[in-house]
Design a protein around this nucleic acid. Structure first.
Length: 534
RNA sequence: GCCGAUGUAGCUCAGUUGGUCAGAGCAGCUGAUUUGUAAUCUGCAGGUCGGGGGUUCGAAUCCCUUCAUCGGCUCCA
């Protein structure tokens, strides 16, 4: 068994071999030769791989006394290998299938120069400081409690304020874009999810249904909002004039995740989606889809996520059993996504086999501090739920027609979005998102009266402000509040009290001079408007 | 769930081969100080060393087990 303790030994051996400047030689062999070679070595895994390769495409690489099966390419020799660091060891299922045996995989990096490796390791070190779990604790944004349960985040006051700022912003944007807000319960009858198909697909791997003591009704914790929204759609007759109908909810959902899957706020068992469903006519599908891409771009720009990637997830053509719905509808849905993305000039990668079981999707990913990609926004076309819930509208021909549904989330979930936001900003949130915009620092207790007047004035002006009236020296207060990443520090002493001003210090930038109190309030309000207006 | 690692006060960490080893700094509370742009001083309080079991005269230290966390794998409606 290999453990972390073995890594230095292996690393030294690698460096030793690299310094020998061994040539690495490629040789193409027949399938039979390859099979003979590796079965002779008793290498069952290589033999398995070779068995699936085409004769004539098999290449071997030899370095010193070691010969390996590999498609290549390889370095011409070990000469360029100058700097090696083995990072960790982890289990990995053979060929990525959890039904297979788990092998041991060693992760490492190498660079042609030691300086480049050092830079990378320094980057990893810096990235650890931006870990949202660490910042979340230091800035008192969120926490977890074993008593509440793993994977169930608790939003602390400052985190809840931040979260609410995002929700308020999104709500304003949605209303401007013609969405209507709804609200639905956290549980739903099992039959709801049987109708939707989720029970059959995920029922066994979910939190199990709870039942009422007298009636024996069966309820599930809501794992998604769409079935509830379908029932709202169904509650009143719909006309083609009502479409597209865009129904939005900040809906909290609960999903069972395996214990090893949980990860800070990015992978949790309870999370709040900024969920919405567009119910539209088939001919409106592409336009609706494009409008959502536009919304994603708008929101991501607002929070400075300039480096996102977009992925189109299609059905696995070799495994149609995994999916529900007709081939015809799948083809229509996939075509609509591809065309919409192309017409919006979105750079995408297409990945077969990654679709949801009911439809293809377009996902937007943003990286965390150490470069892991997380799915945030998602747009999914769905012909199935409208069938299953028998959703209809009256067309201009006075006939019943079936709408198409688009599921979409922009943030994805508040939890994951904020995690990525924290890692991308290192906790230095833009003013409009910051839990508190300013903190007042009186030089001494003598100025507390004026300081509290300032506090009340700002809070009454909808500028969330704190006061630090501890009997500490001003340098200490500045340090502590800088570390809390509060955007503006307002220093108040004799001069300010006499002139009705505040001395403004911007987080991370230092002294900005003094301003009249009302001018400061206007300035802050203006800054926030600038940040989220465009 | 699987593989590996980690788990000492709220946080960051010390604790030699098992034997006054339960400690420090920061945070907290006291008192003093009333301070002009990134750490004022004093005192106090805080931990059944993740939980449980075992080995031993004796366990934070060794073994087993369990829980949680971290890095991956798998999964992700």
């Amino acid at each position: 068994m290999i453990t972390d303790n073995d890594l230095p030994l292996i690393e030294n051996r690698m460096k030793e071999l690299a310094s020998k400047n061994l040539p690495i030689v490629r040789k193409e062999v027949s399938k039979k030769e390859a099979l003979d070679l590796f079965s002779g070595k008793g290498d069952q895994y290589k033999v398995e791989l070779i068995g699936e390769l085409e004769d004539g495409t098999i290449s071997l690489y030899t370095q010193g006394g070691f010969t390996d099966l590999c498609r290549g390419p390889h370095l011409p020799s070990t000469e360029p290998i100058k700097a090696i660091k083995l990072l960790n060891v982890a289990g990995a299922y053979w060929r990525g299938n959890e039904k297979n045996k788990m092998l041991t995989r060693i992760y490492g990096v190498t660079y042609p120069r030691q300086k480049m490796l050092d830079d990378y390791l320094a980057f990893l070190e810096e990235a650890r400081k931006r870990d949202h779990r660490r910042i979340g604790r230091d800035l008192e944004l969120f926490t977890f409690s074993p008593k509440v349960g793993m994977g169930l985040p608790l939003w602390m006051p400052r985190g809840a304020e931040l979260r609410q700022n995002l929700i308020n912003f999104m709500t304003r944007v949605l209303k401007k874009r013609g969405y209507t807000m709804v609200a639905t319960p956290h549980i739903g009858d099992v039959s709801l999810y049987k109708t939707s198909g989720h029970y059959e697909k995920y029922g066994k791997d979910s939190f199990q249904p709870m039942s009422t003591p007298q009636e024996g009704e069966q309820f599930m914790l809501k794992p998604m909002n769409c079935p509830h929204h379908c029932e709202i759609f169904n509650a009143t007759p719909k006309s083609y004039k009502d479409l597209p109908l865009k129904m939005a909810e900040f809906g909290t959902v609960y999903r069972y995740e395996q214990s090893g899957e949980l990860h800070g706020l990015t992978r949790v068992r309870s999370f709040t989606q900024d969920d919405a469903h567009h119910f539209c006519r088939p001919d409106q599908l592409k336009e609706e889809f494009k409008s959502i891409i536009d919304l994603v771009q708008f929101i991501f720009k607002a929070v400075n996520f300039s480096e996102f990637t977009a992925q189109i997830s299609l059905r696995d053509p070799d495994d149609r059993e995994k999916y529900i719905g007709s081939d015809e509808n799948w083809e229509k849905a996939e075509k609509a996504i591809i065309e919409a993305a192309s017409e919006k000039k979105l750079v995408t990668t297409v990945v077969p086999g990654e679709a949801a079981f009911y439809g293809p999707k377009l996902d937007f990913m943003v990286k965390d501090a150490i470069g892991r990609k997380w799915q945030l926004g998602t747009i999914q076309v769905d012909y199935n739920l409208p069938e299953r819930f028998d959703l209809t509208y009256n067309g201009s021909d006075n006939q019943k027609h079936r709408p198409v549904m688009i599921h979409r989330a922009i943030f994805g979930s508040m939890e994951r979005f904020i995690a990525v936001l924290i890692e991308n900003t290192a906790g230095k949130f833009p003013l409009w998102l910051a839990p508190e915009k300013a903190v007042i620092l009186p030089i001494s207790e003598k100025f507390n009266d004026y300081a509290y007047k300032v506090l009340h004035f700002l809070n009454n002006s909808d500028i969330c402000t704190l006061i630090d009236d501890r009997s500490e020296k001003i340098g200490k207060k500045i340090r502590d509040n800088e570390l809390k990443r509060i955007p503006y520090l307002l220093i108040i002493g004799e001069k300010e009290a006499e002139s009705g001003t505040v001395s403004v210090r911007k987080q991370g930038e230092g002294d900005k001079g003094s301003m009249k109190l009302d001018a400061f309030a206007e300035f802050i309000t203006g800054e926030i408007k600038n940040e989220i207006a465009w």
